[in-house]
């Protein structure tokens, strides 16, 4: 009836190499984190091409991430377009170059301000939402429950969300750009008699595909980064409600930072290839 409690020698643990143990603990933690992120990204690329494909969940997340973010993105873009035009007008007027206003604002919005502002808004809204949702699922054992039921939680939760952000952010940016240009037109219209046709003619005459394409391509990377960071932080959330808050918070901070870093790299690359 009773087991023998005497023979309870713990199993031997694998010891780490000496060169690892001499590294400062913070640096080891940093390296561990980098290793985990690399494994996470590799797992994403491995699983994204392997069936079964969670198409229903991808469409559901695209609706949640794309459609539900549209009002916030549109409002922000409208205000940015309006304010940018109102702020730029006096400076251009000083040089007698008011007629350049639609062109200048158009280029600014399409090349830089539209993509970055929309990506930052999405990093805040979508990044935090994914981080908190996955963190909450983790601490309440919903991810374990999914795994026990025979569903691959990484594929169902992580892959679907990263795909959705990667493809929805560019669409939101295009819509944001359009709304920002409308905001800009209203600001111009307040002080001068300009038709909408003339305004958009001036905008599109001063821009070409070399302005639009690099700006559009980088938004896929913004979307990927936002989804990846939110999912990584949420999926690896530590136990407890504090961990959920931390996941949401760090998702926003890191995703926002990555948006700027990717933007910087994208500008360097486009300059290198002579697009700017």
């Amino acid at each position: 009836m009773e087991n023998n409690p005497a023979e309870t020698t713990p199993a031997k643990k694998q010891s780490e190499p000496i060169w690892v143990s001499v590294l400062p603990e913070e640096f080891r933690d940093f390296l561990n984190e980098v290793g985990e992120i690399v494994r996470f990204v590799m797992r994403f690329f491995r699983e994204v091409f392997m069936p079964p494909y969670e198409l229903k969940e991808i469409f559901h997340q695209s609706y949640e991430i794309g459609y539900r973010s549209l009002p916030l993105v549109a409002l922000t873009a409208f205000i940015i377009g309006l304010v940018l035009t109102l702020q730029s007008r006096p400076t251009l007027a000083r040089f007698g170059a008011e007629s350049w206003l639609p062109a200048m604002v158009g280029i600014s919005i399409i090349r830089e301000i539209g993509p970055v502002i929309v990506a930052l808004v999405c990093a805040g809204k979508i990044g935090s939402s994914i981080g908190a949702e996955l963190g909450s699922m983790k601490v309440t054992e919903q991810i374990d429950a999914m795994e026990v039921s025979g569903t691959n939680p990484f594929k169902y939760i992580v892959v679907s969300r990263i795909i959705s952000t990667t493809f929805m952010i560019p669409i939101l940016v295009i819509m944001g750009d359009a709304v920002a240009l409308i905001g800009s037109f209203i600001a111009v219209k307040l002080t001068s008699a300009i038709s909408i046709t003339l305004f958009f003619n001036q905008v599109f005459e001063s821009t070409d595909f070399s302005d639009f394409i690099p700006a559009f391509v980088k938004t896929f990377f913004f979307g990927f980064a936002i989804g990846l960071v939110g999912c990584y932080k949420g999926y690896n959330s530590k136990k407890g409600t504090e961990g959920v808050g931390e996941s949401a918070n760090s998702s926003v901070v890191i995703a926002s930072l990555l948006v700027f870093i990717i933007d910087l790299i994208a500008v360097q690359i486009t300059q290198f290839f002579g697009y700017l």
Binding site: M137, T140, E141, Q142, A145, V148, S149
Partner: peptide, 29 residues
């Protein structure tokens, strides 16, 4: 795992799904 049922301490019901969807979830696979 299809031959094993697991009842979690926290119940671990999927918050974003109805009771029906919670029950149907394992049948997807």
């Amino acid at each position: 795992r299809a031959r094993i049922g697991f009842v979690f301490q926290s119940s671990a019901l999927y918050d974003s799904m109805t009771v029906r969807q919670n029950l149907e979830f394992a049948l997807r696979r």
